[in-house]
């Protein structure tokens, strides 16, 4: 379970998150929607531990861990996964090698047995097939020379292999065609279980047709200004953010 309490954070001279309260119970998928610049990516970075932000108040607990006290890799080992809005390129670093290193680092941290190259490749190939991705994905360097869509799909592949307990997907649907969108949704839905939760950040109701959320939250100006069921996404699609923001003000 993810439990965020009165979280305030920002960068030097600028508060971006102005008191976020949010609970994602285990087994549930929540969506966060909101206008550009409202702080969605900032929230995902703070939850995953990126440098450069000051947390000025509040807490973020995940499965009993105080997230804000942990290193990024400790959060990852605890089961938190972030699909980046802008995935990073790692020149010269082979995708398969990267994934195996990451998976084994997490397994080691959890006291689990590491996977050898053969077992890992078997697992990775199976996931690639299931997500209808190109085989050479594993041979290429991490995100280098990938198209926008390929980068997003690579994030989903990593998620499928690392099997997190909590996945945060930051606009993973942006820039995808409809087939790719379905692949992303399948990737998330395949992980859905009573032990898995997800925070899906998106602009479009479209994705939520495929990943039906338990709850939808609207983030604007650094606050969650409204929460509701899946129907809230339809309302936003129909009326735009402005109406909801005005109403909440």
């Amino acid at each position: 379970m993810l439990e965020i309490n009165a979280l305030r954070a920002g960068i030097t001279d600028k508060e971006i998150l102005k008191g976020i309260d949010l609970i994602v119970p285990t087994g549930e998928v929540h969506a966060i929607m909101g206008p550009n610049g409202s702080g969605k990516s900032t929230l995902s970075y703070i939850l995953s531990g990126r440098d450069g932000y000051d947390v000025t108040g509040g807490t973020a607990m995940f499965d009993g861990h105080d997230l804000l006290e942990m290193d990024p890799e400790e959060r990852a080992a605890a089961g938190l996964f972030l699909a980046f809005q802008y995935p990073v390129e790692l020149p010269g670093v082979n995708n398969a090698n990267f994934l195996r290193t990451a998976l084994n680092a997490q397994r080691r941290a959890r006291g689990e047995e590491e996977l050898d190259a053969v077992k890992f490749l078997k697992l990775a190939r199976a996931e690639i097939k299931r997500l209808s991705m190109a085989d050479d994905m594993l041979k290429r360097n991490v995100n280098v020379g990938f198209s926008g869509g390929e980068k997003k799909r690579n994030e989903v592949l990593q998620m499928a292999i690392l099997r997190p307990k909590l996945a945060i997907l930051d606009e993973t649907d942006s820039g995808l065609d409809i087939d790719a969108l379905k692949i992303v949704a399948d990737g998330v839905n395949a992980l859905r279980s009573p032990d898995f939760s997800a925070l899906v950040i998106t602009h479009y109701q479209r994705l939520l047709d495929y990943i039906v959320p338990d709850r939808v939250h609207v983030l604007a100006g650094g606050r969650i200004i409204r929460s509701g069921g899946p129907e809230l996404a339809h309302e936003l699609e129909a009326n735009g953010y402005a109406a909801v923001v005005a109403e909440a003000a």
Partner: peptide, 19 residues
């Protein structure tokens, strides 16, 4: 790049080694 690797579970030193 460092943060991306650490988000995936690599320690700082392993991330540097990899990069």
């Amino acid at each position: 790049q460092l943060f991306y690797c650490r988000q995936r579970g690599l320690s700082q030193e392993d991330a540097v080694g990899l990069i």
